[in-house]
Amino acid sequence: MIRLSILLFGIIATFVIAMFGLTIVPKFFIDEGVREPTYLTSFEITEGHRIFVREGCIYCHSKQVRPEGFGADFERGWGRASLPTDYRNLLPHNLGTMRTGPDLANIGARQPSRDWHYLNLYQPRAINEKSIMPPFPWLFEVYSERARPGRDGLSLPEQYRIPGMKVLPADEARYLATYLISLVQESTGTE
């Protein structure tokens, strides 16, 4: 019985100590600096973040820039090293672990154009024919050429066009684009 108690104690103790070390202690060190709301987070951005999570963009795009000199993130123009304060306190976190596609932490600075994002989301191969990013056509609506006068459809290359129809972004595409454009490293990062 003594041996069993020591065993149980050891099993729990090793776990709890590490749990404190890796989850609770970082919380105390990081949270205080992140708490103050430094960004204005609008409804569109929150919704866009939700759609970003829903479509699993994070399985191909990281959202964390490594420091200069560690990898070539800086040289590729992806931004300066990310800081805990760069994130808008939107959960879940989207740091990501995969770069099948480029890092998106600073995509708003690189691609501020809505139309570019619409095109890339509707048909990534309209922008780069070698891209393996999946298309997200369900974020868009297809109308007859004559409907909604005054609104131009996406300027798709010939092979992706639907004859007699035009493609317009639905609300979800607009939210997602707003969110992507909002991903700009605002501070200089010298704290």
Partner: peptide, 15 residues
């Protein structure tokens, strides 16, 4: 629900 800032949640995530 205590891991409520992104970086801390990332830590919890990989822990």
């Amino acid at each position: 629900p205590v891991f409520d800032t992104p970086t801390v949640q990332a830590g919890m995530n990989w822990w």
